[in-house]
Simulated assay, not measured.
Amino acid sequence: MHNEEVLVRIAKGLVYTESEAAFQAPLRRTEQIFEYNLTPPSKPERRRSLLTEILGSVGERTVLLPPFHAGFGSNVHIGDDFFGNVNLTFVDDVEIRIGDGVMIAPSVTLTTTGHPVHPARRADFGRFSEPIVIEDKVWIGSNVVVLPGVRIGYGSVIGAGSVVSRSIPPMTIALGTPCRVVRHITDEDLTTRTAGSEIG
């Protein structure tokens, strides 16, 4: 199968294998990610330089605390005023797009890739990939997993420990496994410190 045909299959969310996708290996930024994770806090300029080498695009005033992990790195696009806490994992076989003003708590996984249920279809690491979009001003709590094809809408909050398997509308609080909307964010939240006991 030609590389162009594989790319079409990937874009359609169809199953493809490790061997078929091997031509994409030069897009992996594993060496730079390794170096970033070992760069001391006293060298913020070096960290920033490495981040611009690793990511597909990165905005201003971006904080990404090491260690972080990515399959590629080059398929991740981050906007301005981003804060990513430790142990953020990007499974970025296809694009992950993160808007402005997004905050992500420790030990979050954003995975664009899943695998077929039947073991015969997982031969040669058979998989499918769908992009993830996180819109502006989203806050994602600790230990959240965001699955392939999910879009999290503007301003939303994802409660700690959630597994987000479906897209979440803007300005809502969502939590649980599977993640579900529990309420809308309103002007009343301007006067409270937290979203309430439901996100703990």
Rank of each mutant, 00 (worst) to 15 (best):
M1A: 01
M1Q: 13
H2E: 09
E5D: 13
V6C: 13
V6M: 06
L7Y: 01
V8F: 01
R9Q: 08
I10A: 03
V15P: 13
Y16F: 14
T17C: 10
T17V: 03
E18C: 04
E18R: 09
E20V: 07
E20S: 07
A21H: 11
A21T: 14
A22Y: 08
F23V: 10
Q24N: 09
P26G: 06
R28V: 00
R29N: 02
Q32L: 13
I33M: 00
I33T: 03
Y36D: 01
N37W: 09
N37L: 14
N37R: 01
P40T: 02
P41L: 10
S42Q: 12
S42L: 08
S42A: 14
K43N: 15
K43P: 04
P44R: 08
R46C: 04
R48G: 12
S49Y: 15
T52H: 12
L55A: 10
V58T: 09
R61T: 10
T62R: 03
T62A: 11
L64V: 07
L65Y: 12
P66S: 01
P66Q: 06
F68Q: 07
H69E: 02
A70T: 01
A70I: 15
G71Y: 01
G73Y: 00
G73C: 03
G73T: 05
S74D: 05
N75D: 02
N75A: 03
I78C: 09
G79T: 14
D81L: 04
D81H: 12
F82D: 13
F83Q: 15
F83D: 08
G84C: 03
N85V: 02
T89Y: 00
T89D: 01
D92C: 02
D93N: 05
V94W: 01
E95G: 04
G99Y: 05
G101N: 05
M103H: 14
M103Y: 12
I104G: 03
A105Y: 13
A105P: 00
P106N: 06
S107M: 06
V108W: 01
T109I: 07
T113I: 05
G114A: 12
H115Q: 13
P116C: 14
V117R: 11
P119C: 08
R121K: 12
A123K: 15
D124E: 03
F125T: 00
S129F: 04
S129I: 05
S129M: 04
E130C: 08
V133E: 12
I134W: 03
K137Q: 13
V138H: 02
W139L: 09
I140T: 06
S142I: 02
S142C: 10
S142F: 02
V144H: 09
V144K: 13
V144W: 05
G149Y: 14
I152V: 10
Y154F: 08
G155R: 10
S156W: 02
S156K: 12
G159W: 05
G161C: 10
S162M: 08
S162E: 15
I168R: 03
P170I: 11
P170D: 08
I173H: 07
A174N: 04
L175H: 07
G176Y: 10
T177K: 12
C179I: 11
V181S: 03
R183T: 12
D187L: 09
D187H: 03
D187P: 06
T192R: 15
R193W: 01
A195E: 05
G196E: 08
S197D: 15
S197I: 11
S197T: 15
E198M: 12
I199K: 00
